[in-house]
């Protein structure tokens, strides 16, 4: 996963840029992205952050990034000691500044100046989209242009795309020749395992059962699978309810008239119909999920369901009935 942290002041468009970047990356149907801001009750001018996450499968972790491959500062007054702590290994800081920085990991761009020249206003956010496209494999220049068209008002498209192109040329011309290692490595690996998961789930759903009923699964879901998404397989059961029961309903199959009152009234749906002698039907009970509430025994007009203590046998049941 590629993570980008955006530092800015309210009004500089950091969240807009975070969103456009996510939209640009997810233009590829096999790529997923999240973008979200964090700020307090403060308004324009207060420091805030935004985040973009890009991965080859759905992203389950919605929390703020602590370390990122790309950390953008739209306002250089926010660039303070400790900036290294947020930077992942091999990552890069993009700093909106007229002045170059001695550390090789910090790429400075005069974003405000570039924006003022082209947009007529010193709003530097889209400058850094062009810079990211130049540095990183996760998005291309075309992706970013598409993202702008998809998410920004039409009247802003032309000039912002011009800003992006200018920034791209500026940074591509002078930054390191290699793209960020974290981007080029991450994508193909995650893509491959995502493919496997999709195959596995299609195998499961290949033959839908004639009767839909959740089935007990042998395995619990491993964290590396569920942490990727907020959507999960419905009807997925991993534990039985049988242990709740101190009494067990026993059906006298000979006496059952097939009225299905018990079936109708079971809160757990654990009573099912089954063929009886001839054309008649009777009921049976799924003891894995029966909780032993006793509603079925009370509901049976033929009194052919007995509640017996767990561990007691069938003979005992018949005895109770008589």
């Amino acid at each position: 996963m590629l993570e980008v942290i955006w530092h800015a002041r309210g009004g500089q468009g950091a969240f807009t840029a975070a969103r456009v970047l996510g939209a640009a990356a997810s233009a590829d149907p096999d790529t997923f992205a999240l973008a979200f801001p964090t700020f307090g009750p403060e308004r324009r001018g207060a420091p805030m952050r935004a985040y973009t996450k890009i991965a080859a499968r759905p992203i389950g972790d919605r929390s703020a990034s602590r370390r990122a491959a790309i950390v953008v500062y739209l306002d250089d007054t926010l660039f303070a000691d400790g900036w290294e702590d947020e930077l992942a290994e091999g990552g890069v800081v993009l700093l909106n500044s007229k002045v170059a920085h001695p550390d090789a990991r910090v790429v400075t761009v005069d974003g405000s100046g570039l924006a003022a020249d082209i947009l007529g206003r010193a709003i530097p956010n889209t400058v850094f989209l062009g810079a990211i496209a130049a540095l990183c494999d996760a998005v291309t220049l075309e992706n970013v242009e598409e993202g702008i068209r998809a998410t920004m008002p039409a009247k802003l498209h032309e000039r912002n795309i011009a800003v992006v192109r200018a920034a791209y040329d500026l940074v591509a011309g002078r930054a390191r020749a290699d793209a960020l290692p974290c981007c080029s490595e991450a994508a193909p690996i995650e893509g491959a395992s995502g493919e496997k998961e999709r195959e596995a789930s299609s195998v499961v759903s290949a033959e839908p059962p004639a009767r839909i009923i959740p089935q007990l699964q042998e395995l619990t879901v491993a964290p590396e699978r569920f942490a990727r998404s907020t959507c999960f397989q419905g009807g997925h059961l991993v534990s039985k309810n049988a242990g709740w029961r101190s009494l067990r309903p026993l059906v006298d199959q000979q006496a059952c008239t097939g009225c299905f009152n018990c079936y109708l009234l079971c809160p757990d749906g654990t009573i099912y119909k089954q063929p009886g002698a001839g054309s008649s039907s009777t009921v049976a009970i799924d003891y894995d999920f029966c909780k032993g509430c006793g509603i079925c025994a009370k509901a049976c007009p033929a009194h052919c369901i007995a509640m017996v203590e767990e561990g007691g046998g069938r003979d005992e049941a018949l005895h109770i009935r008589q």
Binding site: P214, C293, I295
Partner: peptide
């Protein structure tokens, strides 16, 4: 009870034994 679907779309839940609410959903 005779004509209703055999599907059990609410199954294996952890409601108390004899839960009225679970029966409504089912």
């Amino acid at each position: 009870a005779r004509t209703m679907s055999d599907d059990e779309l609410f199954y294996g839940h952890k409601a108390c034994p004899g839960c009225g609410g679970a029966l409504v959903v089912r």
